[in-house]
Amino acid sequence: MQKSLHIDANKCTGCLQCEMACSYENYGVFNIAKSRIKVFNFEHEGRKVPYTCTQCAEAWCLNACPVDAIRVDAATGAKVVAEDTCVGCKVCTIACPFGTINYVADSGKVQKCDLCGGDPACATACPTGAITYVDAEWTGLDKMRAWAGKTDSAASAA
């Protein structure tokens, strides 16, 4: 079963445990500047929103890459940057409509979420369940359940 990261911004408190986990998984340091998931704070609305790559089926980044450095991980469906191939041209960063693939000056390559090979560290680290890793075909399940709960049942209609 293919899974995908599922984000429920209403549950996010802005603690950034996800960003620390992401940077540690990929670089062995706690460094939110290197995180591939980013929490945005819409201060005056009182909203915090984690955001990262959605792993597009027809990925703009993958199609734009002139050296085929972005490949599909067959097991997870993640679009993964092959660092040994990436030349750091940044065309993918322009192509991505969501801004979720970015250049890393230290390495001269780009980076994006690769779903940690199928065990995303951000989801494990999230203390509130704002970030989960669920069946890719049922990311709408929680919303469906919420609406289902509002539907009149025969019992209450009686």
């Binding site: 408190t13 802005g14 603690c15 950034l16 445990q17 620390m20 609305e45 009182g46 915090k48």
Partner: peptide
């Protein structure tokens, strides 16, 4: 009240 919020790294919020 709109929501609760955490400081950096805080799992209490």
């Amino acid at each position: 009240l709109v929501t609760n919020a955490a400081c950096f790294g805080c799992t209490i919020a």
